[in-house]
């Protein structure tokens, strides 16, 4: 009875607008809380940062519209150029080893391994630790004179670099920390993906005489491509945001060897108060990330991830 009444109301009442909006117009209400949050705290700031980047705004004093001046001066700012280089190197060299090693380790773990959960846990653990906490430990490990690492290297008779104090080793040291943190995450997600591959495919390949390594190249890698694609994008976005590590471990030095895009944004915005200029740097960061993400879509597994059922 009630149902009938409701349907009748639905059938009779809807005006043109209601029909135009579709059968579940209340969907708008349901997405509203999340969408409003998104628009106010993400989208609006994206536009605002674009507008700010065209000004000479500082926290104090007067400001004016200066067009693209901020962007042109970015290219003459050698701090920024260093940051750009360092960030790209960091993102790439954190991503590649943690992806490939993650996949290999995950593949190994899908064999009948005893203590699977122990390995999974120990690989994943670093990802749970905050960057600040990890940085504090690693600072001590990398200490040139008395750190853990150099004590070991010294005992074995290997050369002992100055790590964070040497421009040639500072960024690699940070990359080690980055890989240490990311490896487990990539591995766990790969593991989940691999467990979704039916064993029969491998069985069939074995019957056809394929070796394990061949199976890895020709079955595993292609089948986990969507996962790789996902991890690639996420890892890249992450890598381009690196800041905490830098702030605690090197503050960008020595001689700008480890300054990054976000570190420059931080310095210029919240230390020197060149908010307009820092906004231009932010805009550029967004463009780079968007560009790489979209390029991935274009040339990676197109649309696999985003497919609408």
């Amino acid at each position: 009875m009630a149902i009938a009444a409701k349907r009748a109301r639905r059938g009779a009442e809807p005006g043109r607008l209601r029909r135009w909006l579709g059968p579940d117009a209340s969907g708008y209400l349901l997405i509203a809380p999340a969408y409003v949050t998104y628009v106010i705290f993400i989208l609006a700031p994206v536009f605002a940062v674009g507008v700010l980047s065209l000004t000479s705004y500082r926290l104090v004093g007067t400001w004016e519209w200066i067009g693209l001046d901020n962007f042109t001066s970015m290219w003459n700012d050698h701090n920024y150029i260093s940051a750009l280089k360092n960030t790209a190197v960091y993102a790439f060299f954190t991503l590649m080893p943690s992806l490939s090693l993650g996949l290999v380790l995950a593949a190994v773990l899908t064999r009948q391994i005893r203590g699977l959960s122990f390995f999974r846990q120990s690989y994943y653990l670093p990802n749970v630790v905050s960057t600040v906490a990890a940085a504090v430990t690693w600072l001590w490990i990398f200490d040139p004179g008395n750190g853990f690492l150099n004590r070991i290297l010294g005992a074995v008779g290997l050369p002992r670099p100055d790590w964070l104090y040497d421009p040639n080793t500072a960024l690699p040291a940070l990359i080690v920390v980055g890989v240490w943190k990311m490896l487990g995450y990539n591995m766990v997600i790969y593991l989940a993906a691999l467990q979704g591959i039916p064993r029969e495919i491998y069985e069939a390949a074995r019957v056809d005489g394929a070796k394990e390594r061949e199976a890895f190249w020709h079955i595993t890698i292609p089948l986990v491509q969507p996962t790789t694609f996902f991890l690639l994008i996420m890892g890249f976005i992450n890598g381009f945001q690196v800041f905490d590590q830098i702030y605690v471990m090197t503050s960008g030095g020595p001689a700008n060897a480890t300054t990054t895009l976000v570190h420059q944004i931080y310095l210029n915005a919240f230390f020197f108060h060149h908010l307009g200029y820092a906004s231009a740097e932010s805009v550029f960061l967004m463009i780079v990330v968007a560009f790489v993400t979209l390029a991935n879509f274009r040339y990676g597994q197109q649309g696999k991830l985003m497919e609408v059922s």
Binding site: N79, D166, P167, G253, P254, A255, N256, L267, F272
Partner: peptide
């Protein structure tokens, strides 16, 4: 900040 960064480069013989 300027002098700090350049001093580092000098000390590192860059």
């Amino acid at each position: 900040q300027v002098i700090v960064t350049h001093l580092e480069a000098i000390y590192l013989k860059q």
